[in-house]
Simulated scan of single mutants.
Amino acid sequence: MHKLSRDDLLSLERYAAQRGEFRARAIAHKRARTLSLGTHATLLFEDRLTVQYQVQEMLRVERIFEAAGIEEELAAYNPLIPDGRNLKATLLLEYADEAERRRALAGLGGIEHRLFAQVDGFDPIPVRADEDLDRSTDAKTSAVHFLRFEFADAAIAALRGGAALAFGIDDPRMPLRATVGEPLRGALLADFD
């Protein structure tokens, strides 16, 4: 997947006119790229469209229209687009009640480093979390983390051949595992093209 450039983005005026339709398409696309690991942990697998939506929204909210500002947003979000050998995801640690969220996040410092991907027949693939900046301390973690999973050629070939794919958290504080079903599996396979 190639990275976004300014030419791929709509001007603020054009985006305002098309926002409703674009937003509906992006939300439906995100829904198909989401994996619930458990009650409080969700993975949203990023791709070019999810990143474009995020950039367009940031430009809109911040009223950014100058080239330098647009380039800064692209530089911040383009690393979330998979490059054909990896999957990139946003980990969302979700708690509806604010007090419960604060308590839970206070007890989950470093949890983002305990995620893994597992292709059937292969060793777990460890996560690379928050490469842009640290979002966790020993005392607490953030509710949002950016993740990268690097796949070997043999694992990608096995996935294309029908091997199962799962993601999980290997930590006694939140031991979770979920197998990827359709249509998400198909969407993730396309990220390797």
Rank of each mutant, 00 (worst) to 15 (best):
L133S: 07
Y95F: 15
L49I: 07
E150S: 06
G121W: 02
I111N: 07
E62H: 14
P126K: 05
L80M: 14
F192T: 10
L12R: 15
D171L: 10
R185E: 01
G161M: 01
L59D: 03
F22N: 11
D171N: 13
T34W: 08
R48T: 11
S142K: 03
R135K: 11
L108K: 01
K140I: 00
R63I: 00
G84Y: 05
S11I: 00
P79A: 08
D132N: 01
E46S: 13
L87K: 05
E112V: 06
L115G: 05
I27C: 00
E21W: 10
F45R: 06
T39L: 13
A76Q: 13
F65W: 11
G161W: 02
A155G: 05
K30A: 14
G162H: 02
A166M: 02
D132M: 01
L80C: 10
A178I: 13
D47W: 07
E131Q: 10
A190S: 14
Q118I: 02
A139E: 08
T90W: 00
F146D: 07
T34Y: 09
P172S: 12
F149R: 05
R23V: 09
E182Y: 13
L49Y: 07
Y53H: 15
G186A: 13
S5K: 10
L147N: 04
V55F: 08
A16T: 14
D191F: 07
L4I: 00
T42V: 15
V51P: 11
H40I: 05
T50H: 12
D138T: 02
E182M: 14
A190R: 15
A154P: 03
R101C: 08
D134T: 09
R14P: 06
A16W: 00
F22D: 09
L80F: 13
R19G: 09
R25D: 02
L12H: 13
I70E: 03
S142T: 03
M58Y: 00
A187G: 10
A75L: 14
Q54T: 15
E131S: 06
P175G: 13
G110C: 05
A75W: 12
G20V: 09
T39C: 02
H113T: 11
A104L: 06
G161L: 01
V144W: 04
K3S: 10
R148Y: 01
M58E: 04
H2L: 08
R135F: 03
E98D: 10
R185W: 03
L43R: 08
R31Q: 14
D170T: 09
D193V: 02
A157S: 01
P183A: 13
A190D: 15
D7P: 03
R6Y: 00
